[in-house]
Design a protein around this nucleic acid. Structure first.
Lengths: 353, 353
DNA sequence: CTGAAAGCGCTTACAG
DNA sequence: CTGAAAGCGCTTACAG
């Protein structure tokens, strides 16, 4: 593979001059510029990014460590992050933690070893050793979706509290009184927050959230299945199951189906995080939709701000309820409707004609 | 950040010796090893992978350029690739082409600039300039899922022909005679092959595949919607729509629903590529499942073989039909059943309890 | 077993 | 505007 020396030789100039034209340095003669360009073309030369990074101490690369790529929410987040990063001239390397702190640390370490310019993380828990070390290491960092209390890093996330209130209003209006939640890991901000938002919203209606109705999940399908089975075996099973993410909702559907029960007739189901498939499930699933694209964009901007020496601030965007039929009532037809919810219950994003 | 010199100073040894213990070189005294280890520990030293790569001319990194990350098939492929790569001591950088040749070339170029050790590609088409150049460039390369005819690179993919025959047998047995397909891009091997397999299978039953029943899609949901609308407006609409991937099946469901029609009563639907959600759609969707995990693993192994100087061979794995209810018949209950298909029509993978 | 030195492919003050 | 030279942080023959 041709190197900068070959180009210099071909152009009859020094490597310094070649480097200057390659980097758009102003003080280069028009003639030199032409000869270098021709030589580059002739040799099919491409600068070695590794050498350049070593010299300049920047890789123009962002690391993104997410809890689970297979979760459509994170897939979309990753996509949005890459798009915005590319627009700003950065590449991104994704590390999939699979909800495992050890794997997360593995990726963080690898990324740091590669000297990425900044790190975007949706932490698996409240602070694995590697994560904490990274935060201290001084590499610019931003949390997305989940964050670690006590670590001084900007957070880009969405606030689901008002959407959860809307959901509970919807459920209460349908006559449901025994509501259960499949939570995410307790060591996770989103795991705790969603339970707390749900509890608070229930409280406003004088409804309790007994421990038996809080199932400990881990944001993966299998846990949704397991927890739902537990709920169904209760002497007084809940009338509604609210899954704190879409994968656990998938698991819940599996469990309900395995029992030969029907949604919403036998039990209602709602989920945090909306996905296109929820329009076509049986029945269509009522869900809380986050503004994923915007979150990804905002996270990248905050991170790049930090990298380039600007402040880089936290962002919180609201989530919103999307009413469908899984809680007992056909979605209202027409532009408005729904129960006590001041937004049209129309499906989200590209999921519906 | 501490460098190797700092470690050497701390340990009272030369950087050469430090490097040797870091790389597990045999001829190092036990004493030196201990002192270096202690110094590394004390300083929290981590080798700079950029410098190491420049020197050794290897990055221990694989590039994976896939056509569309948002497609669950590719998401799972990516995950499997990363797992196997990690097991073999490699990292992977994913580039999402979004079915756009220009974006694909952008990623290929970026990856090559970073001097990745090998490239795994599912090409968007039959050869964009960047892709062809990469194949010529000499970087070890392997195609996954899709490939480019005429380019001499190992191919790891799955053969859907027998599964498509099973599908047509199933459809024919249900009395369907007018079968249509939403194809992938014609510039794509999987785009062409699936149509050809379908046509051949229909031929065995004396059924034609008229041009009007071949809709040109691009593997994305929107095209599935558009093509299906076209089918539904035909004077004689098809009785079955076979979507060549899961996203176009999603689009087809959207279009059918928008028309107020029902699956399978008004029109049957089948899809290539199975996903967990197909178990819970209304109705559950009959699909052809590829052994994705195995494909990812095999692709990485073939690539690493090439990188490390071993042959590295092509692999073709069979796909299989998973019968559900979207074509007109309830899935048979019990361990066996189905029509003329010698495999149990049980749902796939982790999607069912 | 250990160290001094060269060199990987670039960029960038420093002179001219 | 241009070039010679130093140096980014490592690894690895080459001597000893």
């Amino acid at each position: 593979m041709a190197g900068i020396k070959d180009v210099a030789a071909e152009a009859g100039l020094s490597v310094a001059t070649v480097s200057r034209v390659l980097n758009g340095h102003p003080s280069v003669s028009e003639d030199a510029r032409r000869r270098v360009t021709a030589a580059v073309e002739a040799l099919g030369y491409r600068p070695n990014a590794v050498a350049r990074s070593l010299r300049t101490d920047q890789t123009r690369t962002l690391g993104l460590v997410i809890s689970d790529v297979m979760n459509p929410y994170f897939t979309e987040l990753a996509r949005s992050v890459e798009e915005e990063a590319r627009a700003l001239g950065y590449s991104v390397i994704i590390g999939n933690a699979d909800e495992r702190p050890d794997l997360q640390d593995h990726h963080v370490t690898t990324l740091l070893d590669r000297r990425i310019d900044g790190l975007l993380v949706s932490p698996t828990d409240d602070g694995s050793p590697g994560m904490l070390a990274a935060a201290r290491a001084g590499t610019p960092m931003v949390f997305v979706d989940r964050w670690i209390p006590g670590v001084d890093v900007p957070v880009v996330r969405s606030d689901g509290r008002s959407a959860v209130r809307d959901l509970v209003a919807h459920l209460h209006g349908l006559g449901h009184r025994r509501l259960a939640i499949i939570s995410g890991p307790a060591a996770t901000t989103t795991g705790r927050e969603r339970v707390e938002a749900f509890r608070a919203a229930l409280g406003a209606y004088g409804l309790p959230l007994p421990d038996a109705y809080i199932g400990q999940g881990d944001f993966q399908a299998e846990s949704g299945r397991r927890v739902t089975e537990g709920f169904l075996e209760l002497d007084e099973p809940p009338q509604v199951v609210f899954a704190a993410d879409n994968l656990m909702a998938l698991g819940a559907l599996d469990a309900i189906r395995a029992r030969g029960l029907r949604v919403p007739d036998d039990i209602a189901l709602a989920a945090f995080d909306d996905i296109p498939w929820f329009v076509h499930t049986d029945p269509p699933v009522t869900a809380i939709a986050q503004p994923v694209r915007e979150l990804g964009r905002a996270a990248v901007r905050a991170l790049v701000d930090r990298i380039e020496g600007r402040p880089g601030s936290s962002v919180t965007l609201p989530a919103r309820l999307v009413v469908r039929r899984s809680c007992g009532e056909p979605a209202a037809v027409g532009p408005s409707g729904g129960r006590g919810i001041d937004r049209p219950p129309s499906p989200v994003r590209r999921s519906t004609p």
